[in-house]
């Protein structure tokens, strides 16, 4: 045994280092969940019956879903182009896709507010003349979430399309399939696992967003904002059960979607 450890010194060191980072994540979440369940199960049960909490978690989930849906509709076609075509300015476009990931999200919040406010906002003003209000309204939440979460879906879908051999598309075309048909029957299904993973990431990112949303929409309150407000006004014991409930719901959805995506795995070459 000691002999083996000596031989594999580097791998042993890597395992230890890797263990520490995993422990950091597990301990942080586990400690909170355990403390809540052991010390204050009543508080947790109480929030599951609090309509304000449930509404705000529901709001977060469905606005995140809408943001992901919009990212999907506009992002998947872009991802396909980026995976298949070479054109002037392609790396510029790819960099722009990544910008929301690197911009501090509070700064993004201010940018979003500037564009979407209904008095004089570049997009907000014309939208409000069409009776679509973004400020302190659901569309605002969706736009803010879209901004920060779309890159995850686009990049993942692009990698997915790249992993599909263009020769498969060529063969499908030679068999009489149009470009649309080839996309729907060959490219999309084969890239689907990547696209689904990207959508899950995008959705999770949207739910967790705080900074980008609050400048534009402080009411209705998304779950992270409610948590923050409760923490500021009443302290840890009031905000923590909400956090635990939100994590529990998110993990359930996450695990369910992960399992679903594994069904496609067997067809992937990578």
């Amino acid at each position: 045994m000691i002999e083996k450890i000596k031989r594999e010194r580097m791998l042993v060191a890597f395992t230890l280092l890797g263990f520490l980072i995993i422990a950091f994540i597990v301990v942080t979440l586990g400690n909170m969940l355990a403390t809540q369940v052991i010390q204050d199960l009543g508080g947790l049960i109480k929030v599951t019956q609090d309509p304000v909490v449930l509404n705000s978690i529901w709001l977060s989930m469905y606005t995140a879903f809408l943001a992901t849906l919009v990212a999907f509709i506009f992002g998947v076609p872009l991802a396909y182009i980026l995976a298949r075509k070479e054109f002037l300015g392609k790396s510029l476009i790819e960099s722009i896709v990544d910008v929301p990931v690197v911009v501090p999200h509070t700064a993004a919040g201010i940018a979003l507010y500037t564009v979407f406010m209904h008095h004089g906002g570049l997009i907000g003003a014309p939208l409000s003349s069409l009776n679509i209000v973004c400020e302190d309204a659901v569309p605002g939440i969706v736009f803010a979430m879209l901004f920060v979460s779309a890159p995850f879906l686009i990049n993942s879908a692009r990698d997915g399309f790249k992993s599909v051999d263009p020769r498969l598309e060529n063969v499908a075309r030679s068999l009489g399939a149009s470009q649309w048909h080839t996309f729907c029957k060959i490219s999309f299904p084969l890239a689907f696992r990547h696209i689904l993973t990207g959508s899950i990431l995008s959705w999770a990112r949207a739910i967790s967003e705080f900074g980008a949303v609050i400048f534009l929409v402080s009411w209705p309150r998304i779950a992270p904002l409610l948590m923050y407000e409760r923490f500021e006004s009443y302290g840890l014991s009031t905000s923590r059960p909400i956090a635990v409930l939100l994590i529990f719901i998110c993990l359930t959805v996450f695990i369910f979607l992960r399992l679903a995506s594994m069904r496609w795995q067997r067809h992937d070459s990578d």
Binding site: D165, R167, L168, N170, V171, A172, R173, S174, L175, G176, A177, S178, Q179, I186, P189, L190, H267, D268, S269
Partner: peptide
């Protein structure tokens, strides 16, 4: 002419069967 109008059978070296 687009390939779907050509009526050509094509077989690649790596067979390119649709894996799904």
């Amino acid at each position: 002419m687009p390939p779907e109008k050509m009526g050509i059978g094509f077989v690649y070296q790596d067979y390119s069967l649709f894996p799904h």
